[in-house]
């Protein structure tokens, strides 16, 4: 399993791997917001956490369709399916590798982009922390979408459409946890813990659903 993790990480940084595509997209989206909204610093600070979260959500959906499609195209998926190793575990490890390659860079880039949005230290710290807790959930549930669309040649948009409704709770609790951290009366912990719980829930459901979809999609 470590071998699979290492291989997927290696692939993501080699030519055509696309590890940085997501983070570049994230930067592009966030960087153009101040130009569109105008130089109202208070407004930017207020919408900053939401913009960062939306940007990160869309960026994490970007590379998801290749998660299993690339394996299918070169025939590796057949061999992954045949092994004694439970497919759920294989899918889980692939999700972890995908998150390390595409999700973690988003979390690391978030503090820098927070500065673009005139956010203060608390807001930047809270956004980074919630993204760290929330983006794995998007990858896990995205894996199920990617597995359903694995046989479709232009499945990318379909994956986003399938996954987006399921990712909305993650977005809601992520953003509300950040606002709870910067606005006094609301407590930070309850929405944050729900976010963590969603993450754990999707970490179980996502790989199981993806494994079932992959078994059915073989041809």
């Amino acid at each position: 399993m470590i071998a699979l993790l290492a291989r997927d990480l290696k692939l993501s940084v080699r030519a055509g791997g696309g590890a940085l595509i997501g983070v570049l997209f994230f930067m592009t989206v966030v960087a153009v917001i101040p130009f569109g909204v105008g130089p109202d610093l208070n407004l930017l600070a207020r919408i900053g956490p939401a913009i960062l979260w939306i940007g990160a959500l869309l960026a994490s959906l970007l590379g998801l369709d290749r998660l299993f499609q690339a394996e299918r195209e070169d025939g590796s998926l057949d061999l992954l399916l045949m092994q004694e190793t439970p497919l759920v575990l294989t899918v889980f490890v692939k999700c972890i590798a995908h998150w390390l390659a595409t999700g973690l860079p988003l979390v690391i880039a978030a503090p820098l982009l927070g500065l673009f949005m005139n956010m203060d230290e608390t807001a930047i710290a809270a956004t980074t922390l919630t993204l760290l807790a929330g983006t794995p959930a998007i990858t896990f549930i995205g894996a199920a979408g990617a597995a359903i669309a694995v046989a479709l040649p232009r499945g990318g948009l379909l994956v986003s459409i399938l996954v987006l409704p399921l990712a909305i709770p993650v977005l809601i609790f992520g953003v509300s946890a950040v606002y709870a951290a910067i606005q006094e009366p609301a407590p930070f912990l309850p929405p944050f813990l729900i976010l963590v719980a969603l993450n754990l829930l999707f970490a179980v459901i996502g790989p199981v659903a993806a494994a079932a979809a992959l078994r059915l999609s073989s041809d």
């Binding site: 291989r7 692939l11 030519a15 070169d74 025939g75 590796s76």
Partner: peptide, 28 residues
């Protein structure tokens, strides 16, 4: 589980070296 399957497609990654490909499959 007891089979090797050599299909029409080679199940090797173009971006990785042959060594890396084979070492991965051996391990996996």
């Amino acid at each position: 589980e007891a089979c090797h399957y050599l299909g029409h497609r080679n199940a090797m990654k173009r971006e990785l070296t042959v060594d890396e490909n084979l070492a991965f499959w051996k391990d996996f």
